[in-house]
Amino acid sequence: MRILLAEDDFVTRKFMMSFLSKYGDCDVTVDGMEAVDAFLLAQEEGEPYDLVCLDIMMPVMDGYQALIGIRNIEKERGIEPDKAVKIIMATALNEEKNVKMAFDLGCTIYSGKPINQDRFEQALKKLGLIE
């Protein structure tokens, strides 16, 4: 599975990298705009990501904006909703309105930080991303 991670904090990035690498090849970006660019690039190269993991608080574009960007690219390319990439928002922001907004914008999994690894894995299984 191809995974894209966007995370601006070094320590968290390091942790998330090693955590996500268990499930597939993990590319890394450090802000929201880079993430959208990476997503588009992968689409154009015909090797789209299966999973995108976005932090919310990031420079240039935040996770919400990146989420909107990615969903719009998919819409523009005519990708069916059931073929759309699974997007995980992983963040320390856990106010209800943060979570609601993420789901309204089309995120698949919203995970609080620190990440509950067991539940995370369970969710990936539920989505059929891993066995």
Binding site: N94, I115, N116, A123, K126, L127
Partner: peptide
């Protein structure tokens, strides 16, 4: 159940 599934995962220890 397919397609539109959305999942929320609470942080590991919310009382941290």
């Amino acid at each position: 159940a397919t397609g539109s599934t959305q999942i929320y995962i609470a942080p590991k220890d919310t009382k941290a």
